[in-house]
């Protein structure tokens, strides 16, 4: 068996993986932590990077894919620079999340699960994010945006666009 060359994983990720390696008495328990490392670097579960990570951890690749496919919050395909997750659970739904979704689709010209051609935005629906008091709401990357209206959503998108100097 040849040793795989690590091409995609950053030094920081590799360092973290090596740190994790010795932490768990049952080796397989580390799977979820490894998925987080990949997610943190790429924003999604990059399959080639996962292969490299599996090699470092000496755990069969399939174990990572099994876990990643179980959890909905590990995107398995590339997401935009800004990954929009709109809550669709009861409170948000009652307060009009579907209208917001329709508006986002129209505005970004993408479908649910899609990504804009400039890879700036991607759109997905998620279950309750625990912010029912401020429904409807969405999460973009790690930030909550609450009490949304069409106007506010438009403002948020414009702000994010201009922030990345792509106006």
């Amino acid at each position: 068996m040849g040793t795989t060359v690590n091409k995609l994983l950053s030094e920081k990720s590799i360092k973290e993986l090596n740190r994790l390696k010795g932490l768990y008495p049952v080796r397989k328990s580390v799977v979820l932590m490894v998925l987080h490392v990949i997610y943190d670097q790429f924003g999604y579960i990059q399959p080639e990077a996962l292969k490299e990570a599996a090699g470092i951890m000496e755990i069969p690749l399939i174990d990572f894919h099994q876990a990643a496919s179980f959890y909905t919050m590990f995107p398995r395909e590339a997401v935009g620079k800004y990954h929009i997750q709109v809550c669709r659970t009861l409170s948000c739904e009652l307060r009009g999340s579907q209208e917001l979704v329709a508006f986002l689709k129209e505005k970004l010209e993408i479908d649910m699960g899609g990504i804009t051609s400039d890879s700036m935005f991607s759109l997905t629906e998620v279950e309750c994010l625990g912010s029912c008091g401020t429904a409807p709401m969405m999460q973009i990357n790690d930030t909550y945006y609450e009490n949304l209206t069409r106007a506010r959503v438009e403002q948020i998108l414009d702000d994010l666009r201009s922030k990345s100097g792509n106006g």
Partner: peptide, 18 residues
């Protein structure tokens, strides 16, 4: 061997290979 695995969950859980 690590060829076969379980993917997804609930009603969508299914057996497959990579």
């Amino acid at each position: 061997e690590a060829d076969l695995g379980v993917f997804q969950r609930g009603s969508f859980a299914n057996i497959n290979v990579l």
